[in-house]
Amino acid sequence: MKILFIGSRLYDDIDYYVRENGIESIITESNEDAINLDLPDQVFIVPRGMDSPKQIAISQNVDAVVPLIGIDPPLIEVAKMKEELEAETDIPVIAANVRAVRLTSDKIKTKEFYNEIGVPTPQYQILAKDDFESKLKMEFPVVLKQGQGQGGKDIKVAESLDDVKEYFEEFDHALCEKFIEGSEISIEVLGYNGEYVPLSPIYKGETTLEGIHPLNKIKTAPCLVEGLDNNLVQRTAYKVAKNLGSDGIFEMDFMFSKDEQQLYAIEVNTRPNGTRYLTTATCGVNSLCELVNMAAGKFSIKDIQDKLEYYYATEIPIGHYKGPDLNDPLKSFKNNDWVVHGPEGYQRITIRADSKEQLDRYVEDLI
């Protein structure tokens, strides 16, 4: 089997799995100095955009295409390429379709989508720079966001009208959302050919007025939040994915208000995400490897259920890792109880153990 992977930055996460399964690998990459270009069987340096990957997929007669893109801006072009290539050839592209990307890449459209399918989401309104003072009807604090953006970019928790005025010094419009005091939850859902399976919910900490960046938070799993039913998180995530009706990885963010005893949907990402290591550590299912299984026609809910394991895990920002050497493959829990990931200076360590007590000991020994 031959698979074309678009983008090299995440490829070292799955190189071992591709080789184990005897798959011939090709990568297209627009940056000739990108990492991991020494790993696949073939590399093509191409212009930005999806025209060249599409043509290479056809000319190299690949069996499937797996985009490994962890940022939002290229996703709509990937989705268009998917629909074109699948319409013109028998080559599947393991990625979200145009409808799903358009709904999830714009936070306002995502809100409207939640309302249409009956999934609770925080109260919101759209504000404009020229009349926000007269139109703002929500009590403080509120969260101000732009329609596009990821990783906390362009988000501000406003506690007063002066904070809102300051935000509009930079922007002309904003999504204004009720600030939910409670727990931040993420969950990955895998989907292909109409089958969807939610994995383990991840606890990402409590909401803060300071708006701490997600990369600077300590995360844990399984999600153990008083009053929260994890089955509800999984059922809600399944409902969202089913209504999106697309393929690949979905990462969904939720808030759980302890005061209201209410789970709120916040946003969806249709790409590989930052919680994937913690998910793998907790339940034994690697979402990127599952993209390879989708490409190979081996993805099924039963297979996922057979793989499920149960560990305690945590992810901690460490900056520079200086601990013991890891076993190969370095970014896999196959032969390791911890994995180090992220760029130098911004590294994180994800650790797993059979019990909460054992996990605490690991953390004490390693950090």
Rank of each mutant, 00 (worst) to 15 (best):
I3P: 04
L10G: 01
D12S: 14
E20F: 07
I23N: 04
I26Q: 05
I27A: 03
D33L: 06
A34E: 01
I35D: 09
I35R: 13
G49H: 12
G49L: 02
K54Q: 03
I69E: 05
M81T: 07
P92I: 02
A95P: 03
A96K: 06
V101T: 04
T104S: 04
E112S: 13
F113E: 08
A128L: 13
K135R: 15
L136Y: 12
V143A: 13
G147P: 00
I155Q: 10
K156L: 14
V157I: 15
E159R: 15
V164Q: 01
F168Q: 00
F171S: 01
K178L: 00
I187G: 11
E195W: 10
L199T: 05
S200P: 07
K204G: 01
N216R: 10
N216A: 06
L224S: 15
A237Y: 12
N243C: 03
L244F: 07
F250Q: 08
F250C: 01
S257C: 08
K258Y: 13
D259F: 11
Q261P: 02
Q262G: 04
Q262P: 00
L288R: 12
L291M: 15
L308P: 02
E309D: 05
Y312V: 08
E315S: 14
I316V: 14
K334H: 11
V340A: 13
Y362R: 10
I367P: 09
